[in-house]
Design a binder for these strands. Structure first.
Length: 583
RNA sequence: GCCCCGAUAGCUCAGCCGGAUAGAGCGUCCGCCUCCUAAGCGGAAGGUCAGAGGUUCGAAUCCUCUUCGGGGCGCCA
């Protein structure tokens, strides 16, 4: 609906510009907004106010002239000038009836648009290290990222969703030795398990699997030096872990080490994959960090930087000249010991995404990554890619509450609430909805009691209930012997109650909400909208009977209810929340 | 020290690209099931939009400073 009005308005403005020979430098794009107060009509534009100064004319006079240029149509019932120079537009009842017909005809595609023009977007999200199960913080990234991807698809983008697997580097080595030490304990070896190693229960379970498959064959080497290190550990956790890694790697050899490594990697990744899938989050691709080195992408990226003279050597390390692109300091890409840094992988990965043909690289990550944004963008620019091709959305943290009480978590000790536990406790629907109910750039207090509450306190059930009510209405209709005759356009003329008008207005806003949510990467707008729509429907449902004996009125009201149900379902689907037929 | 995010009703939060009288839920108080699901609805009370300047016809919204909170800074990932 808005799109149609917008088009008419633009045409009128073009006519105006031609007639008055308006200079090209003047911005003629109209801001067309919904009014907050119904007395101001349905839509309003401030274009006259904005043009008043550059054209040197009083705003109200300008508004009056522009208002006259807006052509008569079946959509617009009234145009008038108000306040300091707003042009207010009132839509005809017929326009709203037409919108309801559109909703029912378009069905699940109502609200979709082609605005994105098939622009190729790669959305990278979650990308948690495969060193343990996902926790509640990752859940927010998953729910948010998946919904943003859905919104972009709904607005006509060509979307690819990807999970970047950090399966290279020291953290994976630590995971590997953590598993191996637990495996030793399974064999009956009495060792002191290091504080700084991974301590979660899942480590034990991987170790037990290894034991079942390999018996003691992964421990057949001289372990005296290892036992000596464990018995008398150095004061630094990092030094201790590095020594253990070196010793175990030496003892097992590369093949033996990689048996443990792979067992750990696959076990953890399978768990993450299954967890996300059950949560309705299914990335198109899982991109391995190791494959960047193995496939030569890492080397190619560094070579490209070097060719462009953006690298130099200092203190035995290779540095990237990030300061030339506004970063605070230059950054190391190859360490003194010859190992490439995580940042080097990041550079290669992002460059590789560009070479795969993605126009926009949309990264969704935890707020703790904010330091990386400027340097990754710097690297892209240094390789000749546009800085705007990288867009990063930093998602703030999640604090869990059980009612008033904060749930304490410690990742290191393996004492944290996993995403799986959360989903089992509150359900997927409530979790998905809660995660996107707050704006991504705000910290989220996730109240487990509220998310579980099967009451009107819980916005998820509130919205789902509205959907289920319509379903039950349709069943009731059949059981009472009414025929399911689709409402005709003239039947819809029976929708004269103010609550019905309010619902129709609310429904017609849906495509605008999707557009806005996609532009701002803000699924929260959808959640907000659904609550409002559900509220209007519950209110209407309480005040007016749908299954009345008058055929036309009944058919019209059923059509309205079906329109509400369709829009609720479409919105919930974008958020990954189910739309139940009964509750 | 530098950087990012924030401060709106008792509480939790909306408020789009600056727009007309700042909204919702919870909580409190008063009501509504012989009636399509009461997981619902109606009503009442509740505000110096942290503070001070600035830009503008117009500021909760944009800019600057101050105060108070949360987070981040690595040859870790």
């Amino acid at each position: 609906m808005r799109a149609q009005i917008d088009q008419q308005l633009r045409k009128s403005l073009a006519d105006f510009a031609a007639e008055h020979e308006v200079d090209d430098s003047i911005d003629l794009n109209p801001q067309l907004e919904r009014t907050r107060d119904p007395r101001h009509g349905d839509f309003t534009t401030n274009i006259a106010l904005r043009l008043a100064k550059p054209l040197g004319r009083p705003p109200r006079e300008l508004a009056a002239e522009l208002a006259d240029l807006i052509p008569e149509s079946s959509l617009i019932a009234d145009v008038n000038v108000a306040g300091p120079g707003f042009i207010n537009l009132s839509m005809s009842a017929d326009a709203y009836r037409g919108e309801l017909v559109d909703i029912i005809e378009a069905g699940e595609s109502y609200g979709r648009s082609t605005w994105g023009a098939n622009r190729r977007v790669i959305v990278e999200y979650v990308s948690a290290n495969p060193t343990g199960p996902l926790h509640v913080g990752h859940g927010r990234l998953a729910a948010y990222g998946a919904s943003v991807a859905n919104l972009l698809r709904a607005t006509g983008h060509d979307v690819h969703e990807e999970y970047y697997v950090n399966d290279a580097g020291r953290q994976m080595d630590i995971l590997t030795v953590s598993v191996w030490l637990r495996y030793l304990q399974t064999l009956g070896e009495n060792i002191e398990f290091p504080e700084a190693a991974y301590r979660g229960d899942y480590i034990h379970s991987i170790a037990r699997q290894l034991h079942a498959q390999w018996e003691d064959r992964l421990a057949r080497f001289d372990r005296t030096s290892l036992l000596r290190i464990l018995a008398d550990p150095p004061s630094s956790d990092d030094v201790l872990l590095d020594r253990i890694i070196a010793t175990v790697r030496h003892g097992l050899g590369d093949t033996g080490f990689s048996v443990i490594f792979n067992a750990a990697r696959y076990s953890v990744l399978d768990d993450i994959r299954e967890d996300l899938a059950e949560f309705g989050v299914r990335p198109n691709n899982w991109y391995s960090e190791r494959s960047l080195a193995d496939g030569g992408a890492l080397e190619r990226a560094l070579k490209r930087l070097n060719e462009r003279d953006r690298l130099y050597v200092r203190d035995g390390a290779v540095w990237f000249k990030a300061t030339e692109y506004g970063d605070d300091k230059d950054r190391v890409v190859v360490r003194e010991n010859g190992a490439t840094t995580y940042f080097a992988s990041d550079i290669a990965y992002h460059y590789e995404k560009r070479t795969r043909g993605y126009e926009l690289l949309l990264d969704i990550m935890g707020a703790d990554h904010h330091g990386y944004v400027s340097r990754v963008r710097a690297a892209l620019q240094a390789m000749g890619e546009p800085g705007e091709s990288l867009e990063v959305r930093l998602v703030q943290f999640v604090a869990l509450y059980r009612g008033e009480k904060k749930v304490q978590m410690s990742t290191r000790a393996g004492e944290f609430v996993t995403l799986r536990q959360l989903r089992e406790e509150v359900g997927n629907d409530a979790a998905r909805f809660f995660y996107v109910s707050r704006s991504y750039d705000q910290p989220l207090d996730f109240d487990l009691e509220l998310a579980k509450a099967q009451s009107n306190d819980n916005p998820v059930y509130y919205v789902q209930y509205a959907h289920a009510r319509v379903a039950s209405l349709l069943k009731k209709m059949v059981s009472e012997g009414f025929s399911l005759t689709p409402a005709s356009r003239s039947d819809l003329r029976c929708l004269t109650e103010s609550a019905e008008k309010e619902l129709l207005v609310s429904l017609s806003r849906y495509p605008e909400v999707i557009q806005l949510a996609a532009v701002n990467r803000a699924p929260t707008h959808v959640a907000q909208f659904l609550r409002t729509l559900a509220a209007s429907f519950h209110s209407y449902y309480n005040a007016h009977r749908v299954l009345v004996s008058d055929d036309s009125l009944r058919n019209a009201r059923v059509a309205l209810a079906c329109g509400v149900q369709q829009v609720l379902r479409n919105g919930l689907t974008l958020l990954g929340v189910s739309a139940p037929e009964s509750m």
